[in-house]
Design a protein around this nucleic acid. Structure first.
Lengths: 195, 195
DNA sequence: GTCTATAACTTGATAGAC
DNA sequence: GTCTATCAAGTTATAGAC
């Protein structure tokens, strides 16, 4: 029972830390801030966690794994490249909606990781981007996608969905399904009506 | 002459501060770091500037004004909405290329402004977004643009160009003209080839 | 204008009573 | 497990000699 309570407190600390890092940024968020939010003194946090950075490490790598696993599945799909890209975009959009705080920290605060975490994180991200780029290049070769620089296409797509959390509020007017549909339509088909 | 040297030193401090804020983030960048880069002791910085925040304020508002002025010009243009949006996208792309460090700080670090700067900054940004949204809504009404939620279109476009500095290096393989052409083609016309 | 010295404060983390 | 007390290090900024 006590063990269970401790686990709950630990989860609560992680959850509130993610929110705090999102709101203030990792460096500006202090352990005293965090302690206030979970109704503890700062020193008591250390009965549940080892360090401030431990929290950042967990958030960053949990999310990195999520995207890596998503990529594993997409690569195995038996469909054309445009559909693969749509699947990846959906993965980003859904994660941004369902795990807003975690994704925000993952996107904005990873650079405050110290070594060796920082290097590991960067290689995981590079690996993900390489696999995404490969799909784009194949799509261009096969005539599925427009002949635009693969680098430009990769990051234009990723940026559009990567920073969703900066403006989209799941509790707002726009429903998740509409968001997903409209973004995919825009990115895949463009904004302009030809006439 | 001495006055001139002081001015140069001040500019040097501002320039290096922007780089430092970009590399480490505003909070993680210390005045000692900055002093090292301009070959001064930290205390000597205060002969040239008033405070650390003063630098952040200048960077943020200089860039906010740049975009506001760009919007002024676009609104006065005598052309259709699709062309207006293209012009705004070009403004973002060119600024990201020409003023990489300043734009990075403007995008990533504005939230560390304290009041009243923070509120002022947020209203300027909201104002800019409102004017951009108005153009999009008119474009949809007039049949220039696809009937996609204006909010989604606004932020998908803005995100694509807003975070260019996260990956695009002006000294790399991709030329500025190619970047501009490809992004505009992609965003306006989509990535997919219909067949 | 630049320096040394330092004020005043905040930071992450630990020691030890209970 | 939580607390009070505290440490060591780092922060922005200032005072005052030169």
């Amino acid at each position: 029972m006590q063990d269970n309570e401790k686990k709950n407190k630990k989860q609560e600390i992680y959850r509130e830390a993610a929110k705090l890092f999102m709101e203030k940024g990792y460096n500006a968020a202090s352990m005293r801030d965090l302690a206030d939010r979970v109704q503890l003194k700062a020193s008591s946090l250390y009965s549940h966690i080892g360090s401030k950075e431990e929290i950042l490490v967990k958030i960053c790598f949990d999310n990195a794994h999520r995207f890596t696993e998503g990529m594993d599945k997409v690569e195995k799909m038996n469909c054309n490249t445009a559909e693969k890209i749509e699947s990846l975009l959906k993965l980003h959009i859904r994660t941004a909606i369902e795990e807003t705080t975690a994704v925000t920290v993952f996107n904005d605060e990873w650079r405050h990781l110290s070594e060796p975490y920082l290097s590991d994180f960067i290689s995981m991200r590079k690996d993900y981007e390489n696999r995404f780029r490969k799909i784009i290049k194949l799509g261009v070769e096969e005539g599925d996608l427009k002949n635009v620089n693969a680098e430009v296409m990769l990051y234009s797509l990723l940026n559009s969905v990567h920073w969703l959390h900066k403006w989209y509020k799941p509790e707002g007017k726009i429903k998740a399904e509409e968001l997903e549909k409209d973004i995919i339509e825009m990115l895949m088909g463009g904004v302009k009506i030809e006439r």
